[in-house]
């Protein structure tokens, strides 16, 4: 591979995060603590295709994801892998209206950090989510830490609490997530 190939590769590099990150100061972020969103709905219902694409990713042969007869008898239908929960509410990266996807509230907390990485996630799965369920999520900002320095860089830990429901308002899961919003060491 010559220098030209290297240049072509660099031309294709992602130059921005498609998620609409909000920027501001720590004080701005603190004003978001306690803010709770309106319910945000998934654009489509849970489908066997998404269930099995994720199960294939994880190489999980669990019959609850693959065997319709078994899953229907035990759960009432193929169930969504619990670990896919967050993904069921991520909007497609492009929609025909051209509107940018509405990101999770955690990315709309104004902070200086230019990127993020997840730190921890604690979820209770109240009832199974099955093929055909359409979900919504209500998100709340629980806390924003003072600046911390880690090996990745300096930034803030943002804790959120999410409640997932079916369209009939039955809660299916609650999640407590902590994300580290930071500027990589060397970029600041």
């Amino acid at each position: 591979m010559g220098p030209g190939a290297t240049r072509r590769r660099a031309d294709g590099v992602t130059t921005h995060i498609s998620y609409e990150l909000a920027f501001g100061t720590y004080q701005d972020a603190l004003r978001m603590v306690g803010v709770r969103t309106e319910a945000r709905f998934a654009g489509t219902a849970v489908s066997a295709a998404r269930i099995q694409h994720f199960a294939a990713l994880v190489r999980d042969s669990n019959a609850s994801y693959w065997d319709d007869e078994f899953a229907t008898r035990v759960w009432g239908g193929l169930i969504a892998p619990p670990a896919l929960l967050m993904g069921l509410l991520i909007p497609p990266p492009w929609v025909p209206t051209g509107q940018p996807p509405v990101p999770s509230i955690v990315l709309r907390v104004p902070l200086p950090g230019t990127t993020f990485v997840n730190a921890s996630n604690d979820v209770e799965f109240l009832i199974p989510i099955t093929d055909g369920d359409r979900l919504s999520v209500v998100e709340e900002v629980v806390s924003v830490s003072p600046e911390k320095r880690t090996r990745l860089g300096a930034g803030h830990f943002v804790e959120t609490h999410d409640t997932y429901r079916r369209v009939d308002a039955t809660p299916v899961a609650t999640s407590r997530n902590t994300l580290f919003r930071f500027t990589p060491a060397g970029d600041s």
Partner: peptide
């Protein structure tokens, strides 16, 4: 996170069988 959590769930339900269900999972990355 979802991929790692899915691997964690697979370890649990591979052991207990597909009639078992994850009702809580905490991961620290």
């Amino acid at each position: 996170t979802m991929h790692i959590a899915g691997f964690v769930d697979r370890i649990a339900t591979d052991w207990a069988g597909p009639s078992s269900r994850v009702v809580r999972r905490k991961v620290s990355l």
